[in-house]
Write a protein that binds this DNA or RNA. Structure first.
Length: 933
RNA sequence: AGGCGCGUAGCUCAGUGGUAGAGCACCACCUUGACACGGUGGGGGUCAGCGGUUCAAGCCCGCUCGCGCCUACCA
């Protein structure tokens, strides 16, 4: 599939041509190709977000990274959509004929496919557009044909006439997986068990059977009873007369089919339209009479009911039976309906010749590969589910009675009946060499071509360089709902045709649901279009996108029920932007099976994007003159603040890398979010301000370089999650602050610069400890002020007292910062050697061994301070008590690890100290409130 | 029926045997110079319940209750 040239130019910022010879460094993800039927939904947005983050991470780490785009022809789904379109014109596909119909589908596909690719670009997906594949591209068709023919030659592809699930709406057979079971609700019968009598031929009586599908009696060829059933001992072997057909049939004994405890104990046998009856028919050599046409109407075997739809016939049969005096009552009954995954129509079991793939030997290999760890699942729990399904696997019915898809490459000879399966279209029968051969009209299950995706997209069956380099793929990332449909089948086909797993790691994500946790569907009217979140949309647009063709008021009601938080929504969604939507989606852990859309949280990430933008703006106004530094060099400052922030950068870098490596994007996003907002912005940026305002030239230069480094590193860390904003900000940085990497003559961009790594600095425990003290002191001053109701503008003059000289030096160094951040007029530092008195009338707190004392200057209610102190004392004592209790337990001190116990002892000592100081403080406050004492 | 999960703050959800967390919401204060899509401070928990293992359990084991999903079968 070609791409508009403009797209390529726009993507040039990240684009690096993959090297098809660099296998050692290869990193590959083949996208789960979206169905060509529609536009992108939230599930796609999630998939694109996760994969793009992983891919950008790999690319920035210098991997030879291929993310291969594609679209799936989606056999039934697409055919149904185009047929619906035709119906609006008053046409059916049969009016057009096969050739013109498929042409029409191709037209439709061209429009739809381009739109899907465009939407992927909006989400920021850095796909390798030149390698885009459509599952019906000529080379893909060739791969499909090769796979089919070689499976046939190996005896793993065969045709058999068996019971299958037939969808009368789609007029095709379905595989077991495409059958949806609809369980009846507890205690709510959804059908009727209708009993009627077959009169015995010898006139000695009748036998009563019960069924939920009375119309199938037109295909009955026996009545079965249990051989041990005392009720029917005399009847076995007798014959009954069919009331509406010229035939009689036997009452047989079948212990497997007949269940004495159910119904009347006698069961009608319809070998042509029931899985169990078919087995019974085989066991007992019964005739099989098919009564259904492909569209679900009754055929000539339906006798008087021929031509009626099965449900119309059901009522007609019941009436006829009743009229004949054979009805024997009806009771409400609960049965699970088997429905078509696509049309939701009720399926009919019929016997039909279809193509099957033998699964057992293929599945065994796949199970072994997973057992041996050649392919791993995340979350791990899926391994069990996978194994269970794979060890109970049934043969795969791959033929479909559709027109849209890969046509089965089998020809049947009109003369000798032989089947010719061939890579090239044959002109003669391979058995008798006769020319009267006709091609099987059926096409293959969509998932058959999908199963070949990881290698067919790379050129298989040709031995291409790309195949050599990028197979196995590194990661398969997709929804858990298609684990069996797709992942398992790719594993089997990959192992079979390539001799190796198709991918090393499988990451399965959950499903994006509405606020209430319901799966999004147009029928429920709770679908949210990710692009509406990205671009913003009016309420009307949102609601119209949420359901399909429902009246507005009705649609609005359903939408509001699904999203209670939007009840106040008048204007619709603001434009959150693709980056915020991505960051939001990436923030969920992989084990979440449901992701309930949370607009408040999304807005939180929109705010974060804003924060990044504003922080960048601030930094830019100060670092224009930042000094040159060679690529790879990072600052080595002396100050506590700088050393601390660099240490925190190092921490964030390692957390983000770990998160991405372990597929914990939630942890990676949390780490960069917390660092950027709570450390870089809340603290380092604020500590820069006094330096920029009045610091020495050397200090300014150093702080700026550190600031530039931190911002630049942050933007690189953010890039996998918010590519547009990070790139935009990064491009605005002065040359000197940017890392620069030339990439094949294309525009340089953040996307092709190295991802932060251990090279970007290390943890600095000393600086972190010093900074903890500084932060603790500042926070204590603020807390005391807040709790005592000291106005922010008040001219407070806190005294900071410590016995540690180094701490005092740090506090002195940051005098300006402390004043600025606490709005204090003046800070006094005091060195104590223990036993110092606490001055009277001060607000008091202790943090990290530093006593914080704020003269209250008579404006303060001493009672409030007293209350606060009492509360603190109670808190401290409670903790100390439980800690002491634990430390008095010899079992604990004897068995717990030494460092755990030591930590507790330190903590207890600290609590005792604090308790004493608070006590002293409380007594001075008491004095303050009664100065006469 | 079998299998896999889930139950943690008002809501949505993290949590790796060692002092219970985040975002949003809430309360109070602050229109400070990157940002009110902001800042500061605060309140809020019987970690569904019961029992067990352990010095120590939200986490491990068993049972119960409630809620999902998957697979199979049911004239």
């Amino acid at each position: 599939m070609s791409n508009p040239p403009a797209a390529r130019a726009r993507d040039a910022g990240w684009y690096v041509a993959v090297d098809t010879r660099d296998n050692a460094n290869a990193f590959t993800i083949a996208i789960p190709p979206p169905n060509v039927t529609g536009s992108l939904h939230m599930g796609h947005a999630l998939m694109l977000t996760i994969q793009d983050a992983i891919v950008r991470h790999a690319r920035m780490r210098g991997m030879n990274t291929l993310w291969l785009p594609g679209i799936d022809h989606a056999g039934i789904a697409t055919q149904v959509v185009v047929e619906r379109e035709l119906r609006r014109e008053g046409l059916t596909r049969h009016d057009l004929g096969r050739e013109r119909f498929t042409e029409r589908v191709w037209d439709w596909k061209a429009r739809s496919g381009d739109r899907i690719y465009e939407q992927m670009r909006v989400m920021g997906a850095s796909l390798d557009w030149d390698r885009a594949k459509f599952t019906m591209d000529p080379d893909m068709s060739r791969a499909v044909r090769e796979a089919f023919v070689s499976l046939y030659e190996q005896g793993l592809m065969y045709r058999a006439d068996r019971m299958v699930n037939w969808c009368p709406s789609c007029r095709t057979v379905l595989s077991d997986l495409e059958v949806e079971r609809e369980e009846p609700e507890e205690g709510k019968p959804n059908a009727e068990l209708f009993a009627f009598a077959y009169p015995l031929v010898d006139g000695t009586g009748e036998i009563v059977v019960a069924t939920t599908r009375p119309e199938t009696m037109m295909g009955d060829t026996a009545v079965a009873v249990h051989p041990d059933d005392p009720r029917y001992q005399g009847m076995i072997g007798k014959h009954v007369r069919h009331p509406f057909a010229e035939r009689t049939f036997a009452i047989i004994a079948d212990p497997i089919l007949a269940d004495m405890t159910k119904g009347t104990g006698a069961v009608k046998v319809t070998p042509a339209h029931d899985f169990n009856d078919a087995e019974c028919g085989k066991r007992n050599g019964l005739a099989s009479i098919s009564i259904l046409n492909p569209d679900g109407t009754l055929n000539d075997h339906g006798g008087p009911f021929a031509g009626m739809d099965r449900f119309v016939a059901r009522e007609a049969v019941k009436k006829a039976i009743t009229d004949a005096g054979l009805a024997r009552g009806a009771t409400p009954h609960a049965i699970p309906y088997a429905r078509c995954q696509r049309s939701k129509d009720i399926l009919e079991p019929i016997a039909s010749p279809q193509w099957y793939v033998t699964m057992k030997p293929l599945a065994e290999k796949a199970v072994r590969a997973v057992e041996e760890g050649r392919c791993t699942f995340t979350p791990e729990e899926w391994t069990k589910t996978f194994n269970y399904w794979m060890t109970n696997i049934q043969d795969w019915c791959v033929s479909r009675q559709l027109w849209w898809g890969h046509q089965v490459p089998a020809w049947y000879c009109a003369d000798c009946g032989a089947t010719t399966v061939s890579r090239e279209d044959p002109t003669a029968c391979s058995a008798c060499n006769g020319g009267r051969i006709e091609r099987d009209p059926d096409v293959l299950d969509t998932w058959f071509s999908s199963a070949l995706w990881p290698f067919a997209t790379l050129g298989w069956p040709e031995k291409t360089a790309a195949l050599e380099t990028f197979y196995p793929n590194s990661v398969m990332e997709t929804g858990f709902d298609i684990l069996f449909f797709w992942v398992a089948r790719m594993l089997m086909m990959g192992l079979h045709f390539m001799g190796d797993v198709p991918f090393r790691r499988v990451l399965l994500h959950g499903m994006v649901c509405d606020e209430k946790g319901n799966k999004m569907s147009k029928v429920k009217g709770n679908v949210i279009d990710p692009l509406d979140l990205v671009h913003g949309a009016t309420l009307r647009e949102i609601v119209e996108h949420a359901s399909q063709g429902a009246p507005y008021e009705e649609a609005l009601k359903r939408f509001s029920e699904a999203y209670p938080s939007t009840s106040a929504l008048k204007e619709g969604f603001p434009a959150f932007g693709a980056d915020a939507v991505r960051f939001y989606l990436a923030s969920h852990p992989p084990q979440s099976r449901k992701i309930n859309l949370n607009l408040a949280r999304l807005q939180g990430y929109r705010d974060f994007c804003n924060k990044v933008w504003n922080a960048t703006r601030f930094v830019l106004t100060h670092i224009a003159d930042v000094g040159e530094r060679p690529t790879g060099a990072f600052p080595r400052p002396d100050s506590v603040a700088e050393r601390w922030v660099l240490s925190r950068v190092a921490h964030a870098v390692s957390e983000v890398n770990r998160g991405l490596d372990e597929f914990r994007l939630d942890e990676a996003t949390a780490a960069v979010y917390q660092f950027f907002w709570y450390e870089l912005c809340d603290w380092y940026l604020e500590l820069c301000k006094p330096v920029f305002d009045g610091g020495s030239a050397a200090a300014k230069a150093s702080y700026k370089l550190t600031l530039a480094h931190c911002l630049e590193t942050s933007l690189r860390l953010l890039h996998p999650f918010m590519p547009s904003l990070s790139e935009e900000c990064w491009q605005n940085l002065p040359e000197a602050a940017r890392r620069r990497q030339t990439c094949g003559g294309l525009a340089e961009g953040l996307a092709v610069n190295p991802f932060p790594s251990a090279l970007d600095g290390a943890r600095d425990p000393e600086a972190e400890a010093a900074m903890a003290t500084l932060k603790g002191v500042i926070e204590s001053v603020r807390r005391v002020c807040a709790e005592l109701g000291i106005k922010p503008g008040a001219a407070i003059t806190p005294t900071l007292r410590t016995s540690d000289e180094a701490t005092l030096r740090v506090l002195a160094e940051y005098d300006g910062a402390i004043r600025r951040l606490t709005r204090a007029k003046e800070i006094r530092g005091e060195l104590t050697h223990g036993g110092s008195e606490r001055p009277r009338g001060v607000g008091y707190a202790v943090s990290h061994g530093v006593e914080v004392m704020i003269p209250l200057a008579g404006h303060i209610d001493p009672g409030a301070e007293g209350k606060r102190l009492e509360k603190d004392i109670a808190k401290v004592r409670k903790e100390a008590e439980s800690l002491a209790k634990r430390l008095n337990n010899p079992d604990y001190t004897g068995r717990a690890p030494a460092e755990v116990v030591a930590r507790d002892r330190d903590r207890l000592q600290e609590l005792h100290d604090k308790d004493q100081r608070l006590q002293a403080a409380l007594s001075t406050v008491a004095e303050l409130s009664s100065p006469q004492a």
